[in-house]
Design a protein around this nucleic acid. Structure first.
Ligand SMILES: [Mn+2]
Ligand SMILES: [Mn+2]
Ligand SMILES: [Zn+2]
Ligand SMILES: [Zn+2]
Lengths: 158, 158
DNA sequence: AACCAGTTTAAAATCTTTCTAAACTGTGAC
DNA sequence: GTCACAGTTTAGAAAGATTTTAAACTGGTT
C-alpha cells in the first residue's frame, strides 16, 4: 500500500493549485480514504474534508462535530469519535494529550512538537527542526521508543 | 512504621537519615503542611504521608484513595481529589497528563522528564541531565514558558 | 467552652468518551 | 438493476474520571 508522504510531490503546479482551491471538492478525500482502506461513506468523506482541506490544525471531537453541523453535515457524535479513531489508527491523524479529560486530534502527522497555551487551552505546532534533542536516555530494558513528544507549556506574560 | 528506640547525639546527617527512615512518622508531613499553609487535618496528614514518605512516584487519585483505605485511613475520594489539587497548587506535587481520561500526580517536583510505557500505562522518571534540549523555539508573542515536558513513549519490543 | 473559617463528605452532577444493538448503506456478485 | 451481506451509522445508555453541592464536622483561636 502506498504511503501518504508523497501527496504533494506532484510537479504539476496547476493540479496542485486546483486541489488547494477546492475545485474538486471530494477528490482528495476520496483518494485518501481509498488509500487507507476505509469505505468512503458520506460521513467519512465530509469529516475528511473538514479535517484535511483546511491546513494543519488541532481539533477536539466536539469541535469537529460542531463544525460538521455548521457545514450542514448530519453526523452523530459517536461517528465523529469512531472516525477520529479510525483516522488515527491508519496514520492520517495523530492524537495529542496535554490536558486532563480532553483529546486533541492533529491533522499534521509529520514529526513536530507543540506549544500548549495553558490559559487559552490551545495547541500550536513547533517544526521539528526548531527543537534540538541532542541527548536522549536509552529506553528501559525490553522497550522501544515509539515517539518523543516535546510539549512547551506557555502562559500569558505576567 | 518502626520507631527507633535509642537516640545518639544527632548530627545533621543523622537527623536527615532518621527523617528518611520515617522514625517520626508525622513530623515531616506536619512540617510540610505548615510550610505551605495548609491546615494539618487528619486526612491531609495521612495522604501526605502516603505520598511523600515513599520516595518519588506517580499515582492516580483512585490509586491514592485505594492506598489510603488499605492503610486504614478513612477518607473520601472527593477529599483525595481536593488534596491532590491543593498539593499541586502549592507546588509539592505535579500533575502529569499522558493519557486521555486520567491524571497522574508526581511526588517528584524537581525538573525531570518521563518515559511513558503505553502498553503498561505507567510512568518512569528521566533525570533532567539525561535529556539535552540544546535548541528551543521562542515562545509566541506575549507568552512565557512555564514548563517544558519531554515524554518518551515506549512499548515492548516487537 | 464557644465560635467560625476551613475542611470533609455523600450524593448528585458534569463532562468526555465508549458501548450496545438495531437500522442503514456501500460494494460486489449475479 | 437486484440481492446479500459486511461494514457503518446512530440514538441512547453506560462508563469512567472529575467536580460540585450543601450540610456536617473540626482545628485553631479566643
Ligand atoms: Mn483514543
Ligand atoms: Mn487539575
Ligand atoms: Zn501539531
Ligand atoms: Zn516524574
Amino acid at each position: 500500500m502506498k504511503r501518504l508522504t508523497g501527496r504533494n510531490d506532484s510537479t504539476d503546479q496547476a493540479a496542485d493549485d486546483e486541489r488547494r482551491a477546492g475545485a474538486r471538492p471530494f477528490a482528495d478525500s476520496l483518494a485518501r480514504l481509498k488509500e487507507v482502506g476505509l469505505r468512503p461513506t458520506r460521513q467519512r468523506l465530509a469529516l475528511a474534508k473538514l479535517l484535511f482541506d483546511a491546513g494543519d490544525h488541532h481539533i477536539t471531537a466536539e469541535q469537529l462535530h460542531a463544525a460538521a453541523r455548521s457545514a450542514g453535515v448530519k453526523v452523530s457524535l459517536a461517528t465523529v469519535y469512531n472516525t477520529l479513531h479510525q483516522f488515527k489508527d491508519v496514520g492520517i491523524l495523530r492524537e495529542v494529550v496535554v490536558e486532563p479529560g480532553r483529546s486533541y486530534f492533529d491533522t499534521n502527522v509529520r514529526p513536530h512538537h507543540h506549544f500548549f497555551h495553558e490559559g487559552r487551552g490551545h495547541l500550536t505546532d513547533i517544526p521539528d527542526e526548531a527543537v534540538a534533542l541532542t541527548r536522549l536516555p536509552d529506553p528501559p530494558e525490553g522497550a522501544e521508543i515509539s515517539r518523543v513528544d516535546v510539549i512547551i507549556r506557555v502562559n500569558d506574560r505576567a
